[in-house]
């Protein structure tokens, strides 16, 4: 059974070396992910708390997206291996759907607010 266990989890006692890609997480991966995540958390918080620059919204969004990618790669260990093909497909689907739901909602509601400004209502002539 021990051989089968190794096949399940993908790593034996030699996980520390991490020589072959996709064969189990290593301590190095977790440390790298943690350090990157801390940095990507600290940047937006520092900018907002310290009022360093005026327009930080873009920085917040970029840091959040980067940190999510860091989490997926270093903590969830999604990689390009063949056995994770369907995981990648499911993630791609989720990302597209989230983009449509979030982007679509904001787009529609922004246009709605814009087109239904108080002045517009009266400007429109109904015949």
């Amino acid at each position: 059974m021990s051989a089968a266990n190794e096949a399940v989890t993908g790593h034996g006692p030699h996980g520390e070396h991490g020589g072959h890609a996709g064969h189990g997480p290593t301590l190095k991966q977790y440390v790298t992910g943690f350090v990157l995540a801390v940095i990507l958390t600290a940047i937006p918080f520092a900018l907002v708390i310290g009022h360093v620059v005026q327009d930080v919204l873009l920085v917040i969004v970029v840091c959040a997206a980067a940190q999510m990618i860091v989490h997926v790669v270093y903590f969830l260990h999604l990689n390009r291996s063949e056995e994770q093909r369907w995981n990648r497909m499911a993630l791609l689907y989720a990302v597209i759907m989230v983009g449509i739901i979030l982007g679509g909602s904001l787009w529609i509601m922004y246009s709605l607010n814009y087109n239904m400004m108080p002045g517009m209502m009266h400007a429109k002539v109904w015949k």
Binding site: T9, H11, P13, G15, G24, P25, T26, L27, Q29, Y30, G33, F34, A37, V38, T41, F45, V48, I49, H71, F75
Partner: peptide
Amino acid sequence: LPYTLTETMFLLCSSFTCGLATLAMNA
């Protein structure tokens, strides 16, 4: 915001220790 930052660090550290648990399990 400093309160939220502390919360965030709690969750981030727990994610890291969860990774260490994974390594221990694999070993």
